[in-house]
């Protein structure tokens, strides 16, 4: 593979392109929210927001802003035709009951077994706050993670065992990073795409994991 590592926008484009037609999707707060910029009308994707709405539209601007209509990040959003509202217990029943096809989440770390850490650094002075992360992690049929592959100090964020407190166990199915895309499978962690200078060997060295090569 040639070219540069993926930008955040390109990562969001890749995730959007992998969402099947007609899927019900929850986009986590932060980088995952940008996936909505690249979903096409032809995909007919329905966005779920945990605070009680299906059929969420784009961010609201100007006169569209309504304090009673916000997303999980507490940003004002809009309605799409066919949208619906429901209370919190129904919203999480949708999630926990396996009715959402895909959740896209950010992460601090993902383990080779698909364990996810994204809610708590475990630092002694940190104030823990979980929101809907644990429910999404175990509830959606598939969990896609979007993250930088390494920390600021260069350590891999795909690891043998989590060192951060877990959000959910064996829940991640695919990881999108700027250097590569990984599938978590029963056989192990599979590299499906590499970008920029990355090779499967360089990724093996970085992560210390026996990555399987399924790059085309």
């Amino acid at each position: 593979m040639s070219g540069a590592p993926l930008s955040r926008a390109e990562m969001a484009q890749r995730v959007a392109a992998d969402i099947p037609v007609g899927a019900f999707v929850n986009l986590g707060i932060g980088i995952p929210t940008s996936v909505s910029n690249y979903l096409t009308a032809e995909q007919e994707v329905t966005l779920h927001t945990e605070n009680g709405m299906l059929g969420m539209g784009p961010e609201a601007h100007g006169d569209e802003v309504d304090p009673d209509l916000i997303n999980a990040g507490k940003i004002a959003v809009t309605e799409l035709p066919g949208c619906s509202y429901f209370h919190h217990a129904d919203s999480f029943a949708m999630m926990r009951g396996g009715h959402l096809d895909i959740a896209v989440l950010g992460a601090f770390q993902v383990s080779a077994a698909g364990d996810l850490a994204n809610w708590h650094t475990g630092a002694p002075d940190a104030i823990p706050a979980v929101g809907g992360a644990m429910d999404l992690a175990v509830g959606a049929k598939q969990v896609f993670v979007m993250m930088e592959l390494t920390t600021k100090s260069g350590a891999a964020k795909i690891v043998e065992q989590l060192t951060y407190p877990a959000t959910g166990l064996a829940c991640v199915s695919r990881i999108y990073t700027e250097q590569a895309i990984f599938d978590i499978t029963p056989a192990g962690v599979v590299v499906t795409d590499v970008f920029g200078e990355a090779t499967v060997d360089s990724l093996r060295e970085l992560t210390g994991l026996p990555l399987l090569d399924q790059t085309a």
């Binding site: 945990e50 209370h87 919190h88 217990a89 919203s91 999480f92 029943a93 999630m95 926990r96 823990p128 706050a129 979980v130 929101g131 809907g132 992360a133 644990m134 429910d135 175990v138 509830g139």
Partner: peptide
């Protein structure tokens, strides 16, 4: 701190007369 879905469901359980429930979350 309670995961948001467990929070909603624990409240729902109280209102529905449920003594507890098993959640995967």
């Amino acid at each position: 701190v309670v995961p948001q879905g467990n929070l909603a469901e624990r409240i729902r359980a109280a209102g529905a007369g449920i003594g507890g429930f098993f959640s995967p979350t």
